[in-house]
Structures are given as C-alpha cells and as structure tokens.
C-alpha cells in the first residue's frame, strides 16, 4: 500500500475509488456485474449470515453468474436477519430479509437471473446524509 502523504493524495485516491464504483454500477457498462452485500454483524452471523454468504458464492459460481459477494455491517433490521442487499447493474440496490438458503436460491433464480422481485423486500426506511 502506498502511503497517503497529503490531503491531495487522499482526494486523488478517493476520486479514483469513486469513479471505479460508479462505473461498476452503471447499467451501460458491459463490465458491470451483480454485487451482493451480506450483513455480517454479530447478530447477522448468529442468524446464519456466514452460511448464506458461502451459499451465494458457491451457487453463483456454479451457475457461472459473475458477481461480487462482500460483507458489510449491521443494516439495522435485526428482526429480519440474515439480510442481504443485491445491486443489479444500473438498478437501485434492493434489500431482502429473512434469507435462508431456500430464499437465497429463489433470489438468484428470480431476481438476479430474471429480474423479477420476490416477497420480503425490506424498504429503505431511513434518510442518508449523502448528496
């Protein structure tokens, strides 16, 4: 890792990272891929988030769907753990709650492959401070 030696260094790094993210998410970019975040805080893991993460990684690989599965922290929906967020290229991210392996398979089959929604979406119920 290169050291960040000044505010300008940080800004440069930030811009590079932001551009990368923007490109990755844009629908028009042919290299855009599916991105999945799994909520992996103590309570998510206790409800089985690790197995879901492994299941998603394996299943997507087997079906040759190019996707990045990463972990994230608490989304706040403890009543609906495990929760995952799926971003299809060019679309708003969607959060699914109470994801067991059966539901995970359904999400891949219906939402990721066929762009159909499935029951149990968790609406974003908060305002962010970005803009």
């Amino acid at each position: 890792m290169n050291k960040i030696k000044s505010f300008d260094d940080l800004k440069q790094l930030r811009e590079g990272l932001q551009a990368k993210i923007k490109q990755r998410n844009s629908g028009s970019n042919p290299e855009s891929i599916v991105r999945i975040k799994v909520a992996m805080s103590t309570c998510g893991i206790a409800s089985g988030a690790k197995e879901i993460m492994n299941f998603l990684t394996d299943e997507l690989e087997q079906q040759s769907i190019e996707a990045v599965v990463t972990q994230t922290g608490c989304m706040g929906y403890c009543y609906a753990e495990p929760t995952i967020e799926v971003s299809l290229p060019g679309k708003e991210p969607i959060v699914f709650g109470d994801v067991d392996t059966f539901r995970a398979a359904e999400i891949i089959e219906k939402y990721i492959i066929h762009n159909e929604l499935v029951d149990g979406i968790l609406p974003v119920n908060y305002r962010t401070i970005d803009n």
Binding site: K37, Q71, T72, M75, Y126, R127, D130
Partner: peptide
C-alpha cells in the same frame, strides 16, 4: 422518513474490513 443516519451512515453500506470503501465515502 423518520430515520436519519449519521452515526450509522456507513453501517450496512461499506465493507468494514476494507479501508478503501470508507475512503470512497469521504
């Protein structure tokens, strides 16, 4: 919306084990 996230702004958004994701969000 009733909720506004300041302290929790990145929770459930970034990968906490990747500093680059934090930097990308200022």
């Amino acid at each position: 919306k009733k909720q506004v996230r300041i302290a929790l702004r990145n929770c459930g958004v970034i990968n906490p084990e990747n500093i680059d994701e934090y930097i990308a969000r200022d």
